[in-house]
Computed example of a mutant assay.
Amino acid sequence: MGKQVGIIPFTGRVGPLIGYRVGNQYLVRSMPAQVRQTPATRRSAQDFGKASRLGRSLRNAIHPQLTVPSDSTLGRPQRF
């Protein structure tokens, strides 16, 4: 992982490079030449996606019933 130095930092894919942001730093990495997935890992990723969508549905359904104030930092890394 390298730091991006330049006038215009980027996120996303540009050719074989992937730019991303962590905190206030913009970093870059190269794409892997090949991604291998076994049938088991593919099935596991699909199951995780289903569970994630179900969790979102539950959170959205329960949210109006909660009396606690909303916390927008949920799921974001904390900076100390």
Rank of each mutant, 00 (worst) to 15 (best):
T67G: 10
G75D: 00
V28F: 00
S52M: 14
S70L: 12
L66I: 07
V5A: 09
V68G: 01
T38F: 04
D71K: 01
P39H: 04
P32T: 09
R42L: 13
L27T: 00
T73K: 04
S72F: 04
T11G: 06
M1W: 14
S44F: 11
V28K: 01
V14T: 12
G23P: 02
P77T: 08
L74I: 14
V28P: 01
R59P: 00
V22I: 08
S44W: 13
N60K: 15
F48A: 15
T67L: 09
L66V: 08
V68M: 04
Y26Q: 02
V5E: 12
L27E: 00
V14Y: 13
Q78E: 14
R13T: 06
V14Q: 11
D47R: 15
G15K: 07
T67K: 13
R43H: 03
Y20L: 01
A51L: 13
R29E: 14
F80Q: 14
A40C: 01
S70I: 12
D71V: 02
Q4K: 01
S30G: 08
I62G: 07
P16L: 08
Q46A: 13
Q4E: 04
Y20T: 02
Q4L: 04
G75V: 00
P32N: 07
I18A: 04
I8V: 14
R59L: 10
V14I: 14
Q65I: 11
P69T: 08
I7D: 10
V22Q: 07
G2N: 07
R59F: 08
L54W: 11
G49H: 06
H63V: 04
H63W: 04
Q37K: 07
V5D: 09
I8W: 09
R43P: 00
M31P: 00
I8P: 13
R42E: 06
A33S: 10
F10Q: 02
A40I: 05
V5S: 12
Q34T: 08
Q46N: 09
L66H: 06
S52A: 13
R36A: 14
G12L: 06
P64G: 04
L54Q: 13
Q34Y: 01
V22C: 03
T67V: 09
R42K: 12
V68F: 02
P77I: 05
D47S: 08
D71L: 03
Q25H: 12
T73I: 01
I62L: 15
S44H: 15
P9H: 00
G49A: 09
R43T: 06
G75I: 00
L54S: 14
R56G: 14
P64S: 03
A40P: 00
N60S: 13
S30T: 13
P64V: 03
I62N: 07
K3E: 15
V14R: 10
D71A: 05
P64T: 03
P64H: 01
R36S: 15
G55M: 11
R56H: 09
F80L: 12
L74D: 13
Y26W: 12
G49D: 10
S72T: 07
M1N: 08
Q78F: 11
Q34R: 11
G6I: 04
I7M: 10
M1Q: 10
Q65H: 09
S30F: 02
A33I: 09
